[in-house]
Design a protein around this nucleic acid. Structure first.
Length: 115
DNA sequence: GCAATGACGCTCT
DNA sequence: CAGAGCGCCATTG
């Protein structure tokens, strides 16, 4: 496997654990998820981990957006559209420019989430 | 093992 | 407020 026997549990697993905690109707940024996972400098790796997620993943990857409150410009716009639809279905509305007011929809965990 | 890429973030202009 | 540049680190070729 790609993971080495000496490296922790694996960065992806850690990130997915946090993403899975995002409540419905709320969104979180890559940097926020990375920070909650204990990896403040791994914002990019968060997107990388979600990128290798299967279509039948139980992880609400669509609730993760960038710090601008927008869906990152992905290679296939079709997937971005799916994310937009899923968020809208959860009650998350997009403002002009396709941006979500994080001030209102950003997920605010009561505790660090760190065991 | 080295080089290039990437679902990002922050600062400066 | 918008756009461009630089930095950070893991994964892939």
């Amino acid at each position: 496997m790609t993971a080495h026997p000496g490296t922790r549990d694996g960065i992806p697993a850690r990130i997915l654990a946090v993403v899975r905690r995002i409540p419905r109707g709320r969104v979180a940024t890559y940097g926020q998820v990375a920070r909650l996972a204990g990896l403040p400098q791994h914002a990019r790796q968060v997107g990388y981990a979600l990128h290798r997620l299967p279509d039948d993943t139980p992880v609400p990857w669509h609730r993760v957006i960038n710090a601008r409150g927008e869906i990152s410009p992905r290679a296939v716009p079709d997937d971005g559209r799916l994310q937009h639809l899923l968020l809208a279905d959860e009650g998350v509305h997009f403002g002009p420019g396709g941006r979500v007011p994080l001030s209102r929809y950003q997920w605010k965990p009561s505790r660090p989430g760190n065991r």
